[in-house]
Design a binder for these strands. Structure first.
Lengths: 222, 222
DNA sequence: CGTTATATAGCACGACTGTGCTACAAAGCA
DNA sequence: TGCTTTGTAGCACAGTCGTGCTATATAACG
């Protein structure tokens, strides 16, 4: 038939339909039929692009992960460590409608991956990527004297905080505004800086150098 | 027929079957038929106790919430603030198999509540209860000089950390042992205490009294 | 032109779903 | 004793599901 649009473009359209259905009706209602209807395609046509349902779902899940990756990678360079980390973290939080949608879909897929083996590698990939990002951010902060030196533990803490905020934002979008989410992130970063300074003052066994040794701005624990 | 067992007991048995199926096959496979088979009952018999599926699910969800409440309420009294809070938090984390099961089921129900209105009041109830518990714990810590005075923000932070850890434990039970989860909780509590001491030292505007004014034990940020 | 690959459409099958309904056995009560 | 309530069982209906399959129309290529 008419190669009127690029097949990859069609796949992206279909993926968009998947995400809309998942958001509106839940993952369990994202049947091949419902997705085809949402995309304005026949069932047979959809199955031309995705032979099976799990293929369709895996592709949609991957596209969400990639979109998040792209957004973080696309951040403007920022020399100030604290500012760079904070912006990165905010980019990972569901602060606007687009990210809220991604976040809900991520949660749905993540939950299903608990018993759907086909989704598990993807889920683990996303988890590992975020874990690594948290590790890198804590490393940077620690080097700048803005976080304690026990990097793995602090990375785990930050990672859990991040995903917890994401879950809460999905559960109660009314209670979790962009402002309240950002405030908690800022509070956590302030807290890490204070912990680090305190550790250096007393033990002094903290080997962290210091690009801005005295200077997390803002009141600690605001 | 034979009133051989208490009807309430039967309902609890059926609830147990629901939880087993949800854990093993996911919430979307917890059909009336599957639950009946798991419970060793006929479909019609099950429907004698739960007229509709959503009634069954709501009951099962509620039972999970109540079990968590009971466990926290059943904690032995503990005069030391820090110890008491830490024990409470550990009680809320999926550290053993029973709590892991509850946690997975909680996650499944919570996710479904995003588009299933019947589950939403229950989900909100659970959320609010945990939120209130976090608020109370931070209040206690703050009064004891073991947490900063900005209670609402710190409560939100702790709440998110808690749910984030729960999600992570459900996603990657292998990576999140009871030890690693406990360590992160301890790390967070240590951090809060350090933040509080630092705030009092510099600003001094911290009105917190002090049941053990100098004394969070353990190294900060272990 | 004809041939082939691509894209769209839609039907059919078997499986599974929730629930309405009837049938029947046993217990409680008259 | 008989009658009513309660518990158990299972069938039937209408609906949805994923997917195998065929049919057809257009674009690309010979």
């Amino acid at each position: 038939m008419p190669r009127v649009v690029d097949p990859a473009e069609r796949r992206r359209e279909i993926t968009g339909a998947v995400l809309r259905v998942v958001r509106r009706d839940g993952l369990e209602n994202a049947s091949v039929r419902n997705v085809a209807r949402e995309a304005g395609l026949s069932m047979g046509s959809l199955r031309h692009y995705f032979a099976t349902q799990s293929e369709l779902m895996a592709f949609a899940f991957r596209s969400v992960i990639e979109r998040i990756d792209d957004r973080v990678a696309g951040l403007a360079p920022e020399p100030d460590t604290r500012e760079r980390v904070e912006r990165t973290l905010l980019q990972l939080l569901p602060l606007d409608d687009e990210r809220r949608a991604e976040n809900e879909v991520w949660l749905a897929f993540t939950t299903r991956a608990a018993y759907d083996r086909a989704l598990r590698p993807l889920r683990d990939e996303g988890y590992d990527a975020l874990r690594a990002a948290c590790h890198a951010m804590i490393t940077d902060l620690s080097a700048a004297g803005l976080a304690p030196a026990d990097v793995p533990a602090q990375a785990g803490r930050l990672h859990a905080l991040l995903d917890g905020l994401a879950v809460h934002a999905a559960m109660r979008p009314d209670l979790h505004t962009a402002e309240s989410l950002s405030a908690i992130i800022a509070c956590h970063l302030d807290g890490l800086a204070v912990e680090c300074r305190a550790a250096r003052r007393r033990g002094g066994a903290d080997e962290s150098g210091g690009e801005e040794p005295g200077g997390g701005r803002g009141e600690p624990g605001r």
